[in-house]
């Protein structure tokens, strides 16, 4: 565990808490893509199956359970409890366009052709693109509430910090995983446009509005 990895994890947990609090306090999930949230739930479900097979550390297990529980709670709040506030019409990204290519790619490019390894690889690929329905929703409505912007910034920062963690681990421990690194780079690139808008607008107190 190094500082980049820990900061990344904190940022990830922070993002999830921001999102849950936003939905809970405003009693609304307006502006949030349920499809991205479903994809994240699929990501955690397929990646953290190893909770039952491998023990890494208490920290690791607690975080995995936390991600599974909070993503389940988010999906529940969006599709059951506050269903009426869900922005159904704007959340029109077709997730099969992400699920199918990720599934095929994980069958072809993986470290080992076993069920657990392919599912892990699938979850890594899927996570890298799971935010697309959310970014698509923001681009369709042309704006995002500040709290949603903070959520996206924290969520995007998490993988960017992991990239630094991987650079550090490569140099210090000679540890690297090309699949995770490749997907992490893709994931971070997808946020770049948003990061730019966040820094130039939201941090200056303006609402995130896309240029017409």
């Amino acid at each position: 565990m190094n500082i980049f990895r820990f900061a990344g994890d904190l940022s990830h947990v922070f993002a999830i808490i921001i999102l849950l609090l936003k939905i809970w306090k405003t009693r609304s999930c307006a502006g949030i893509s349920g499809k991205s949230q479903i994809l994240f739930a699929v990501v955690y479900l397929t990646r953290y199956l190893d909770l039952f097979t491998t023990y890494v550390s208490l920290y690791n297990s607690v975080m995995k359970v936390l991600f599974l529980a909070t993503s389940g709670a988010t999906v529940y709040l969006m599709y059951v409890k506050f269903k009426a506030t869900y922005d159904h019409n704007h959340d029109s990204f077709r997730i099969e366009f992400l699920l199918i290519p990720c599934a095929l790619l994980s069958l072809v490019i993986n470290h080992d052709f076993t069920v657990m390894e392919v599912l892990w690889t699938f979850s890594i690929y899927l996570e890298s693109v799971a935010i697309l329905p959310q970014l698509f929703l923001v681009s369709k409505t042309g704006e995002a509430e500040s709290i949603t912007s903070h959520y996206l910034f924290a969520l995007g920062s998490y993988r960017a910090l992991y990239l630094l963690n991987w650079v550090y681990r490569y140099m210090v421990e000679s540890h690297y995983d090309l699949i995770a690194i490749f997907a992490g780079v893709v994931q971070t690139i997808l946020y770049c446009d948003f990061f730019y808008l966040y820094i130039t607008k939201v941090l200056k107190g303006k609402k995130l509005q896309l240029p017409a």
Binding site: R5, H12, N60, H111, N165
Partner: peptide, 10 residues
């Protein structure tokens, strides 16, 4: 052996 990956990250 590089095929066996240590999955110690989240």
């Amino acid at each position: 052996y590089p095929g066996v990956h240590v999955k110690d990250e989240l």
